[in-house]
Nucleic acid binder design. Structure first.
Lengths: 142, 142
DNA sequence: CTACCGGCTAGAGCGCACTCTAAGTCAACC
DNA sequence: GGTTGACTTAGAGTGCGCTCTAGCCGGTAG
């Protein structure tokens, strides 16, 4: 399979496929005698998995760590598993936050839908239990 | 309240607060006689709401549309409501996708945890029902 | 033979959301 | 009166994840 077909089948652009190879997210592809990339269908499975990691917000930097472990092969399973477990927890936390935000959104929308529009309802306070604790920021601004 | 205190209380940096004002996400702040921004506590409620929109992945471009409607005030409620409803649907869809990805992640992690490690389990196929339909891409690459 | 398509590389450019710098002002404290 | 520190502005810089350009090469159809 050449890069164009892989692009169609994976949903990535050819640009992105080459970019992923450049940075090491995809293994260096085999080439035919004229130097063109020639892919095995199995690469699709890996790309699909990368898509899942991306969809769940994993930064490329971390996918690279996973990809590097995968390349190293046997002996890295524990580390790969741990990496995915940490990621899973972050995803779960993110989903919980989204859930809370949905509640806020629902309340707001209900406000707009109701006849009893308060003129200032965009300033309706958010219940304390839904607020994020404001972490430390701008540690040394100069 | 001056910008530094607002920064501490909102969790945004002073840079970000000025940036938000510059682009119109925050209303132009009142100034004291020496030209410094002087905020009313009510701005915190608006910032908290913006944080919710941001947390749910709304791009600034769209928050701006909402902010502009809010500035225009009365008569824009229906449009504001519709905007939030569209956003809510996107958030729900995104959560559904995350849920599906979590299943993939769970399967993978279980594979790493199990004693019966298949050497190639990073290539374990993703069940068809969890795959995203690959939308049209790279429409005209030149 | 020529045109065209799809591929190749190196490297530049882009959109987003900040984040920081430089140079200056102002109020309070010693 | 001088220093400190928080503020002001315009504008430059950053990190991320692509996305595209330029210039070239090779295989195939007319």
């Amino acid at each position: 399979m050449k890069i164009g077909e892989l692009a169609r089948r994976s949903g990535l652009s050819t640009y992105t496929i080459r970019y992923y190879e450049r940075i090491g997210l995809l293994p260096r592809a085999d080439r035919d005698r004229s130097g063109q990339r020639d892919y095995d269908a199995s690469i699709l499975t890996w790309i699909e998995f990368l898509d899942r990691l991306k969809a769940t917000g994993m930064p490329i930097r971390e996918m690279l760590r996973y990809a590097a472990l995968r390349e190293r092969g046997a002996g890295t399973e524990a580390e790969r598993g741990a990496l995915l477990e940490r990621h899973r927890e972050r995803v779960r936390a993110h989903m919980a936050e989204l859930e809370a935000c949905l509640l806020v959104l629902d309340t707001k929308i209900a406000g707009y839908a109701g006849k009893e529009q308060r003129k200032d309802d965009h300033d309706a306070p958010i219940p304390e239990r839904l607020r994020k604790p404001a972490g430390p920021r701008q540690a040394g601004a100069r």
